[in-house]
Write a protein that binds this DNA or RNA. Structure first.
Lengths: 228, 228
DNA sequence: CGGGGGCTTGAGGCCACTCAACGATAGTGG
DNA sequence: CCACTATCGTTGAGTGGCCTCAAGCCCCCG
């Protein structure tokens, strides 16, 4: 459980706008940055939710565990994403840094205080929660009804929209992480990727298998056979 | 597509409290009741969300479809439940009456108007959306990582808490509905129920298979091996 | 250069799906 | 009242997709 405060943490006072929130009032809230090494837990399921987080650099996984260790990742949080917004006293997921990660954080208590007097903030919270809900609803369809190739195709389309830079997307997570996100095993994910590659829909770049170029977006979206 | 306005619809004006919402202001909003015959669609996915609904009598299923007809039910709505709260312009599910159902409904537009001036209503909306999100998150774990018997056990525990009356719960939905909720086939649901019955955890009551008594709640919760 | 983590691929097994048969019940119409 | 039909549920037999187990490669790093 190694946590280090970054040296570039100036503990400056900023407005909520810096945190991606619009606010009618000019509330000043103190923002800190914390650095988490790859693999380190940010918070645990059932822990009191003291902070809300935004990814500055890096990537985070949010997951639940069954008593025998089976893991379901509910979401990946990438640069710019806000997470840990429990809207209740306790976190519903465990969050871990996938790679070395720098987070901004805001005290939940302070956020609540602002939200009480500023309806715009409450509405922003509602909007973010609705986005999370929409993602979870789509993911239920994937987990309940899609086969392995469809799941991986859906995953690639989602990641393509979120982290593509110049034709190549560099995935921060391992095959195991992808598998636990998609309700599969890492071997099945690997086989599905190989099938898509053999089908000419994508290709690996470089000598690591984490960088992927999508060669045929149209066909990939067709494999992910979601309605519209 | 048969919709009939119930004769006992008085079109009376009521406060939001009647709809299960607390409000600081004494907003008056017109409430209607509509009757839906078993199997009738209430709204479709992607349709503009004109109303929010509360189940007065009956039961409703909310689902998504893949292009080839595979169905994933995201939630069942039972007496008292509020649903159709899209927090956006379009519905994200199709909703259908499972049995003959009477709904109360409220114009979304009116709700938005009240929420604009009344922060308490916005906060209530946030609370309801958060509850929906929590349910979806738990359901992702079920769909991604639980086996068939665990899924059915989880389902029974959930329903037991929601519709138990005097030791017996009367399920309104078919085995197919349960299967599409749990990401299984109807045969697998049937087999899992038989296994739980043979194991002495539950029993069927009457000559229909829709009425179930849970004989051993403790062991049923153990089968649903979720962490705490 | 040895060791470990990450990834791929193959072989075999198992759980859930598919297909099918059958019984029970409810609704319909002659 | 009794076919007749449709819907719903259970159970069995066989299949298949994903999981399990294992081997081997590559890369990074001490």
């Amino acid at each position: 459980m190694f946590v280090r405060i970054t040296t570039d943490c100036k503990n400056r006072n900023t407005t909520l706008d810096d945190f991606g929130m619009t606010s009618g009032s000019d509330a000043i809230i103190s923002l800190n940055e914390i650095f988490y090494k790859k693999g380190i837990e940010i918070y645990g399921e059932k822990e009191p939710s003291e902070y809300v987080y935004q990814v500055k650099i890096g990537a985070v996984r949010s997951y639940k565990l069954l008593s025998d260790g089976r893991r379901q990742i509910g979401a990946f949080h990438l640069a710019g994403d806000i997470f840990g917004l429990a809207n209740g006293s306790a976190h519903r997921f465990t969050a871990e840094a996938i790679v070395d990660t720098t987070l901004r954080l805001i005290k939940r208590e302070a956020l609540d205080r602002v939200a009480e007097t500023d309806p715009v903030v409450t509405r922003t919270l509602l909007g973010m929660t609705t986005l999370n809900l929409k993602h979870a609803e789509d993911h239920m369809l994937l987990l309940g009804r899609k086969d392995s190739v469809e799941r991986v195709a859906t995953f690639l389309v989602e990641m393509d929209e979120r982290i593509r830079t110049s034709q190549v997307m560099a995935l921060p997570m391992t095959r195991r992480d992808i598998a636990d996100y998609l309700g599969l095993t890492l071997e099945t994910v690997s086989r599905a990727l190989s099938r898509l590659r053999r089908g000419g829909l994508l290709d690996f770049v470089g000598n690591t298998q984490r960088q992927i170029t999508i060669l045929d977006r149209k066909r990939l979206r067709e494999v992910d056979c979601q309605r519209h």
